[in-house]
């Protein structure tokens, strides 16, 4: 996974609350057994006037030239609620998003972001709105810089701190492979398991199906 330290990019405000993962990628756009090939389906219900023909809806923000190449999304509260589909994060990342800024996130979506190097930055609603106003006044030039080392968003001369769990920050900065990281503790896991099975033999099911 690509380590994340600092990113500068065009930000697109999509400030509706409770943007669910069905909206981020409808189930019908998950056509392949793969983490790839999903960017086209991103926000398909909003992005296309005719999703079948892939005819863009010009009123949707990410279709407007001012937001071309946007890599930071400003969202409303409870962003990414609903289905656990990691496809929502894969689609955002493949589209080019590196950061989502929102007052709060769906818990599973937030963990899926960390697993894929997408930064979920928590910023209070009033401050997300202020960032959005600044961005909207000149989207192409008013780029945001998101610094994960300092946990700060730079908007011109202004600075907005953001929140992220220390464990998540560490994982993003290091770009760790979580399975390898955990398997370093294989002995500890096996020991815990031995004790658990000894104390509660019913927990263990017979091998194989």
């Amino acid at each position: 996974m690509e380590p994340f330290t600092r990113h500068t990019g065009v930000a697109a405000p999509l400030l509706k609350a409770n943007i669910d993962t069905d909206a981020i990628i409808p189930s019908r756009e998950m056509r392949r057994v793969s983490r790839h090939g999903l960017a086209e389906g991103l926000f398909a219900n909003w992005r296309y006037a005719d999703a079948g023909a892939r005819r863009p809806d010009p009123t949707f923000l990410l279709n407007q030239s001012a937001y071309a190449g946007a890599s930071i999304l400003l969202g409303g509260a409870n962003f990414g609620c609903g289905s656990s589909r990691e496809h929502a994060v894969w689609a955002l990342a493949e589209f080019g998003m590196r950061v989502v800024v929102a007052p709060s996130f769906g818990a599973i979506f937030q963990k899926n972001c960390i697993a894929n190097g997408l930064l979920p930055a928590v910023v209070a609603e009033g401050e997300v709105n202020a960032l959005a106003r600044w961005v909207e006044s000149d989207p192409a030039r008013h780029r945001l810089t998101v610094d994960l080392v300092e946990t700060t968003i730079h908007a011109g001369t202004g600075k907005t701190p953001f929140a992220i769990a220390e464990a998540h920050r560490f994982r993003l900065i290091e770009g760790l492979d979580p399975i390898r990281y955990t398997l370093e503790r294989a002995d500890e896991i096996a020991e815990f398991e031995r004790e658990r099975f000894a104390a509660h033999p019913w927990v263990r099911l017979p091998e194989g199906a």
Binding site: S84, E86, A107, I108, N112, N116, T182, L183
Partner: peptide, 22 residues
């Protein structure tokens, strides 16, 4: 616990999950 695909893969490979206690 509902999780994403990558976390499920982690659980299959390690019988564990990393999580902050809610």
């Amino acid at each position: 616990l509902g999780v994403g695909t990558t976390e499920a893969e982690h659980a299959l490979a390690t019988s564990t999950l990393w999580l902050a206690r809610p």
